[in-house]
């Protein structure tokens, strides 16, 4: 199962590789997230995908109900490329880091990504290309060393 830490899925590149941001018009449920990820999975030159969203805690974390299971319907295990992924967030955006060499290659990959999202995100999204994530370690990454 894919672990769910705040760290990026792949090692830091140390340099700002291009990222495609897919910013959904609505927060996505687990089923839609699964569809989007499976549509993105076969696209070549994707180095890693990081999702952001709103946290769905496993248990109620404060107040009179503290400690009891949250049982949020969208916090569940989905299948991506045959792998189990435990989803902990209501996903709102995908940050797709690309392993491309030039503009032509970038355009081609972005076109494939856009197509995949169009097919799986009926409520719409916007695409943005840039750098949105850390590409170097910061203090937090050294915790526990």
């Amino acid at each position: 199962m894919i672990s769910m830490s705040g760290k990026p899925a792949a090692d830091y590149a140390g340099i700002p590789l291009p990222e495609v941001e897919i910013f959904s018009n609505n927060m996505l449920g687990a089923d839609t997230t699964e569809k989007v990820l499976n549509a993105l999975e076969p696209i070549e030159h994707i180095r890693q995908i990081n999702m952001t969203g709103e946290s769905l805690s496993k248990n109620i974390n404060n107040g009179p109900a503290k400690g009891i299971p949250n049982n949020h319907s969208e916090r569940k295990v989905i299948k991506v490329g045959g792998r189990d992924v435990e989803l902990c967030y209501l996903v709102g955006a995908f940050y797709i880091e690309l392993d491309v060499e030039d503009e032509e290659m970038l355009n081609a990959v972005v076109a494939q990504i856009t197509e995949a999202c169009e097919a799986t995100m009926p409520m719409g999204f916007s695409v943005n290309i840039g750098r949105f994530s850390k590409f170097r370690k910061s203090l937090r990454d050294y915790r526990g060393e």
Partner: peptide, 23 residues
């Protein structure tokens, strides 16, 4: 929501509901 109120500024979900971490 008596506690954990986060959601007023979030995009709505696929059913048009405001986000609630505790559902």
């Amino acid at each position: 929501r008596g506690a954990t109120v986060h959601g007023h500024a979030c995009r709505l979900d696929e059913h048009g509901l405001m986000f609630d971490a505790w559902q």
